[in-house]
Design a binder for these strands. Structure first.
Lengths: 103, 103
DNA sequence: CATCTATTTGGCTAAATAGCCAAATAGATG
DNA sequence: CATCTATTTGGCTATTTAGCCAAATAGATG
């Protein structure tokens, strides 16, 4: 399913999904400190490098990350500086979590 | 995996995941206009009511929704008014989408 | 140009998620 | 209290996603 022909709603979901996996969220949070190369991110996440690469591809295709090749390495960075406010909302919700069980 | 004993990172991911599915995102967007009951949301989403109910349970357990029983109906509402800024960031990213394919 | 390094891609298996139907539950109402 | 309505739960199948390994690729370097 090519993202270029996706509906606005599908693209929104793809962006959110790109941040919904624990490893991918960790990657995004780490990139708030500046760009990192794939091998740095592999250390960070602690998974096979091919797994990390696939996470990065998914995030890039969703529009969340940019990448740039310099020398031997490929450096990934956040496509938008709004991640902070995104996470501020997430944390507000995550703190409350599970309190309401009326049903 | 009980959410009460989850790490902060797991709870964050659960919140984001709760908004990452197209039907669930639609539900959340609709609730920005005020609370709705399960049968309203069933119409909106157009899936089996049991499917909708499971989406709602997941969102509630993640902390994204609250619910309240009144009369025969159960009304769901957003647990936090920050969804607007959350989506503002998502849309910034969703617009850019897929532009960068250096690799 | 042969080789080395960093990264991606293909292919596979295991695990998680989504959706439907049928059955159970809880509370309202006659 | 029998029944009705709204919703949830259980159980199942199909689809999607995650992760590993091995192989391919792209560009840098001797």
């Amino acid at each position: 399913m090519p993202l270029l022909t996706a509906t606005a709603s599908e693209r929104r979901s793809a962006v959110i999904k790109a941040l919904a996996h624990p490893s991918r969220l960790l990657i995004a949070e780490s990139l708030m400190g500046g760009e990192l190369c794939v091998c740095d991110l592999k250390e960070l996440v602690g998974a096979d490098i091919s797994t990390v690469s696939k996470h990065l591809t998914l995030m890039r295709e969703a529009g969340v990350l940019n990448c740039e090749k310099r020398g031997l390495n490929i450096f990934y960075s956040l496509a938008c500086d709004c991640l902070g406010e995104f996470l501020r909302c997430v944390d507000k919700l995550a703190c409350g979590g599970n309190k309401n069980t009326c049903c």
